[in-house]
């Protein structure tokens, strides 16, 4: 794998942060995460346009049911959640600052 591939994979990983995909705050509880995940899956199954994209610091990106399921699974593991939460807090703050 080339360095270019590494950079693209890293970027993809950052922008597919589970908190961004699920559109929940980094401080969300387990129950809130599960509820939001199920809601998004239902909306995607119904073909609602609003569910098809999610916001990132680099603009809106496509959201798929697989991404939603993967995000829920990632946040169920406390160790993985810790890392995702750390990144999401920083990116959420960046997004809020940009919005103002």
């Amino acid at each position: 794998m080339t360095e270019a591939d590494d950079v693209e994979n890293l970027l993809r990983e950052r922008l597919a942060n589970p908190f961004l995909v699920l559109d929940v705050a980094p401080s969300a509880s387990v129950a809130e995460i599960e509820r939001q995940g199920q809601r998004l899956l239902a909306e995607l199954a119904a073909g609602l346009d609003g569910a098809r994209r999610y916001a990132t610091p680099s603009g809106a990106r496509a959201r798929t049911p697989e991404m939603v399921r993967s995000a829920i699974a990632e946040l169920r593991d406390p160790a993985r959640r810790l890392a995702h939460e750390w990144w999401a807090r920083g990116m959420a703050a960046a997004g809020a600052a940009a919005a103002t």
């Binding site: 950079v7 693209e8 970027l11 680099s58 920083g90 990116m91 703050a93 960046a94 600052a97 940009a98």
Partner: peptide, 20 residues
């Protein structure tokens, strides 16, 4: 060009994006 993000995490992602 992208606006410079306010946090270091945002700047980091922006630089990854520029490199990609």
């Amino acid at each position: 060009p992208p606006r410079v993000p306010a946090t270091v995490h945002g700047r980091h992602v922006a630089m990854l994006e520029a490199s990609a």
